[in-house]
Design a protein around this nucleic acid. Sequence first.
DNA 1: ATAAAAAGAGCATTATATGGCACTATTGTG
DNA 2: CACAATAGTGCCATATAATGCTCTTTTTAT
Lengths: 73, 73
Amino acid sequence: MLHFEGLIRIIKERREVLQVTQETLAELSGVGLRTLKQFESGKGNPTLLTLQKIADVLGLEVGINLKKVSLNK
Amino acid sequence: MLHFEGLIRIIKERREVLQVTQETLAELSGVGLRTLKQFESGKGNPTLLTLQKIADVLGLEVGINLKKVSLNK
DNA sequence: ATAAAAAGAGCATTATATGGCACTATTGTG
DNA sequence: CACAATAGTGCCATATAATGCTCTTTTTAT
């Protein structure tokens, strides 16, 4: 499972900025520690609900937007 | 499973704007028709990968952003 | 350099998402 | 209205996400 680099990066950075450990984030969000570790380490394919729970605690929100178009590719 | 109204609305609207049926979107995205139906009807909790596949075909992308702060409430 | 804290990984179990099929309901067009 | 197309649902088998436990690796602080 891979392709979630962007999302993962944002979550990790945000967690670090807020000085929250995986363990604390797991507790606060209600997501299992194992699940969080899996996701942050790039393995795993979380459900939308799991992602939302994590994001929520970090003051983030999951959204869906128009893709930015890059002309050349 | 509920709470994904926003995401669902965007996907449905976008699908309708593009005049794509659920069936076609399912085929194009590689996501099972059943899964797509579940999601759009507000039942279901798709994985991030599933959501990405759907979004991708519609020219959308899943992202995570700072929550907008509402002062009151 | 070492100890403590935090992050990652193997293994096993449980919960749940996926997806096919057949059927029903809703919507839209004549 | 009436028929066709599209959307939603029950049932069910299979795949895989979620989670806990234990252990290893990496990072951080002293």
